Amino acid sequence: KKKYVIKVYFEDTGKEVEIEAESKEEALEAAKRLAEELGLKIKKVEIYP
C-alpha cells in the first residue's frame, strides 16, 4: 500500500514537520489539526508519493 510523506512548513517559526499518511486528504487533515494545536499558520505543504 502506498504511503504519502507530507512536509509541512509553518510561518514565523521556520519549523517543518513530516507526516506520513495513507492519502493526501488524510495528510492534509493531519497538517491542519497540527497547525491548530500549535496555534501556527501553514506556510507551505509539500507532498511526496
Rank of each mutant, 00 (worst) to 15 (best):
Y48E: 06
I47C: 08
S23N: 10
K1Q: 13
L40C: 03
E37K: 14
L38W: 06
E25F: 07
Y4F: 06
E16L: 08
P49W: 09
K3D: 10
S23M: 03
K43C: 07
V8M: 04
V5A: 07
K3N: 09
K43S: 07
G14M: 07
I42N: 00
K44S: 12
Y48W: 15
A27G: 15
A27Q: 00
K43Q: 09
F10I: 01
A21M: 08
R33C: 08
Y4S: 02
Y4C: 06
E11Q: 13
T13L: 11
K2S: 12
A21L: 10
K41N: 12
V5K: 11
E18N: 07
P49F: 08
E36W: 11
L34I: 07
V45D: 01
V8P: 00
Y9A: 03
E29M: 07
Y9P: 00
G39P: 00
Y4T: 04
I47N: 02
A35R: 01
Y48K: 05
V17E: 06
E26V: 11
K1M: 10
K1A: 13
K2E: 15
A21V: 10
A27F: 02
F10R: 00
K1W: 09
L38A: 06
A35E: 04
E25K: 08
K7G: 01
R33Y: 12
I47Y: 05
K2H: 15
K43E: 13
L28Y: 14
D12M: 11
E25W: 07
T13K: 09
Y48M: 13
V5L: 12
L38H: 03
E20G: 07
D12V: 09
V8W: 02
L28C: 02
P49T: 13
K44A: 11
L38V: 05
E18P: 03
K1I: 14
V5N: 13
G39Y: 02
Y48A: 09
E18S: 09
I19W: 15
E11N: 11
E36G: 10
E26G: 14
E18G: 04
E36Q: 13
S23E: 06
V8A: 02
E22M: 04
K15P: 13
T13V: 09
R33A: 07
K44R: 15
A30M: 15
A27T: 02
K24G: 13
D12G: 14
Y9I: 09
A30N: 13
A35M: 02
K44T: 09
K41R: 15
A27H: 01
K1S: 07
V17S: 05
V5M: 06
E25M: 11
G14Q: 14
E37S: 12
K44E: 12
K3I: 08
S23D: 12
I19V: 04
K7N: 03
L38M: 12
D12H: 08
E22G: 07
E26P: 01
L38R: 03
G39N: 10
Y4A: 02
K44V: 07
L38F: 07
V45R: 00
E26L: 06
E11D: 13
V45P: 01
K41W: 04
A21W: 02
S23P: 00
Y4P: 00
L28T: 04
G14K: 15
G39H: 08
I42F: 02
P49D: 14
A21E: 09
K32C: 03
K2N: 10
L38I: 04
R33W: 07
E16S: 13
G39R: 03
K44M: 11
K43R: 07
Y9W: 15
L34Q: 03
I42Q: 00
L40A: 04
V45I: 04
I47R: 02
E11C: 12
K41V: 14
T13W: 05
K7H: 06
K32W: 09
V45F: 09
G14C: 12
E18K: 09
I47D: 03
S23K: 02
K15W: 05
L38D: 02
K44I: 11
E16A: 12
A31G: 05
G39I: 01
E18H: 08
L34K: 11
K2Y: 07
K3R: 05
E11Y: 10
Y4M: 05
K3C: 14
E29H: 06
V45K: 01
E25G: 07
L34S: 04
P49S: 11
V17I: 12
D12F: 10
E37T: 12
V8E: 00
E11I: 12
K7Y: 04
A31D: 00
L40K: 05
L38K: 04
E18L: 14
E25N: 06
L38Q: 04
I19L: 13
Y4W: 05
V8K: 00
K24E: 14
A35C: 10
K3Y: 06
Y9E: 07
K7V: 10
E22V: 08
I6C: 02
A30P: 00
K24N: 06
E11T: 10
L40S: 04
E46L: 08
Y48D: 04
Y48N: 07
E36S: 14
L28P: 01
E46N: 03
A31E: 00
V8D: 00
I47G: 03
A21P: 00
E22H: 12
K15R: 08
R33S: 05
K15D: 06
K15A: 07
V17T: 14
V45A: 03
K3W: 13
A35P: 01
